[in-house]
Nucleic acid binder design. Structure first.
Lengths: 109, 109
DNA sequence: TAAACGTACAACCTTTTGGTTGTATACTGG
DNA sequence: CCAGTATACAACCAAAAGGTTGTACGTTTA
């Protein structure tokens, strides 16, 4: 069963479906930030921001690097691209250009 | 405040973050389906599938058309493209090619 | 016209999400 | 070495998500 890809895709789009997380991701794509630094941007607790970072991390959208006592986050553009690729596949499906539709559809009709 | 765009983006990625909804979307991008026909593909109630269709509809990813007693769904590829565009903007940000970063970042640092 | 069909939607339940506070641990600097 | 800083993580809570069943209503069709 190819449910592992679907699991990753669920996590990927779920991580992107929150404006705070998208903002953290945008910033972390530009440069590294400590979690405390990120927390300073939003009107919520440090722990809440820490959880958002964890969601992004589980989705593979960012990684943390240790520097002394702080954890520096940086965005992984490859994962952003992989999400874009999934959307492009949907578009190709619409265009009727994908032959092996079975690979993308759960069941057949 | 430009929170309307963020609201739509939340709805868009949230709609994509479920495998059943992605499957409904894939099928509806290829051709029209009645909700009952869609429900036949999944191991859940008609009402559950109906709710998934509603989530996709609210996100603008598909529209329903009436044909007699049935509602035919078809996917809107333009909205899929708009999601891809948002991801491309993240990539451009990473590339350092976006000048007006303020437009994309919630607050400044 | 009555039965069957397709949809809509309300009410309900359980799990997940997104937030909180509190506590523990590890590193830094004076 | 000890006070302050940064992170990690547990426990808790309210709201949202994802499912269920039941009911109502318009459209076909026999």
């Amino acid at each position: 069963m190819e449910t592992a890809l679907e699991d990753r895709t669920d996590a990927l789009f779920h991580a992107l479906a929150d404006r705070t997380r998208r903002d953290i991701l945008r910033r972390s794509l530009v440069r590294e930030y400590s979690i405390t630094a990120l927390a300073g941007f939003y009107d919520m607790s440090f722990a809440a921001v820490q959880k958002h970072v964890a969601v992004l991390e589980r989705a593979g959208l960012l990684v943390k690097r240790r520097r002394g006592r702080e954890a520096l986050t940086h965005g992984r553009v490859e994962t952003v691209r992989s999400a874009a690729t999934l959307l492009n596949e949907l578009e190709e499906l619409w265009r009727g250009r994908i032959g092996r539709i079975d690979d993308l559809l759960a069941r057949d009709d």
